[in-house]
Design a protein around this nucleic acid. Structure first.
Lengths: 125, 125
DNA sequence: CAAACAATTCTATCATTATGGAAATATCGA
DNA sequence: TCGATATTTCCATAATGATAGAATTGTTTG
């Protein structure tokens, strides 16, 4: 994942309403929710929600499908996964301490250990 | 980590200059770089860089220390780790498919498996 | 103290983002 | 086709963010 794309995804998530939408969709994965249901649950005006959904779609964080006269939005897990991979790589890479294990995210910086090779593997997961 | 703080950190990273600053600091962890060196390397005006550093500091992503007449900025790995933990949790939680293993980030959504308990452990790492 | 340097704050300006009412588009059921 | 419903687009407005010159603050060295 390139930095430009990372910025796009980060921007999409860096807004409380949109983060709330995304989290709500995660709760309802993999089927998702209709736009009206999202608007109702989060108390957003239709136009406002539509604006935010457009942002999330554009960033590739959500997908939509028409079903009857409803449009269902669902989260795209791969996009989030890519973002986490990007952050993990650039949090733990190079000379940075704090990425001792092959596990999850970064560890608090303490000792100097050989950097894990797991990060690059994880990218393609 | 609360959503509000997550939005703060995401916002701080959701800007290309700031993401570049953060990545540059990661390359130079744990000692960091002086503001002037950052500005020079990234081709940013001093005032502009100062503005971005303030954002990053406010989000807790970087720390600073004065050394002579230089101010050195260094990345706060724990903050990034918290963010990754937050995203991992809210990417993989509840009914969402796609978090089969206890490893790193999320997996592409496929099968339905018992959700890992590693996420909550990871939070406190 | 004064000069040189590092960095920040002040200030103004320009650009982008968020919000929601109103109109437009699309789908369904009668 | 018509009316009801779902959603988006259009539009104007308000709020926030980014940029950088100039002035300011703080530090070091002579």
């Amino acid at each position: 994942m390139q930095s430009k794309q990372a910025v796009t995804i980060l921007s999409a998530l860096a807004q409380s309403s949109r983060l709330a939408v995304y989290r709500l969709l995660i709760e309802h994965a993999p089927d998702g929710l209709a736009a009206s249901a999202i608007a109702q649950k989060l108390g957003l005006a239709n136009a406002t929600l539509s604006f935010h959904l457009k942002e999330l779609s554009h960033a590739g964080l959500v997908a939509s499908r028409q079903e009857g006269r409803f449009i269902y939005y669902s989260p795209v897990i791969a996009a989030m996964n890519d973002l986490i991979g990007y952050l993990t790589d650039h949090c733990c890479s190079q000379s940075a301490r704090g990425c001792a294990t092959g596990k999850a995210g970064c560890k608090p910086a303490t000792a100097t250990k050989p950097r894990s090779a797991a990060a690059s593997k994880r990218r393609s997961a």
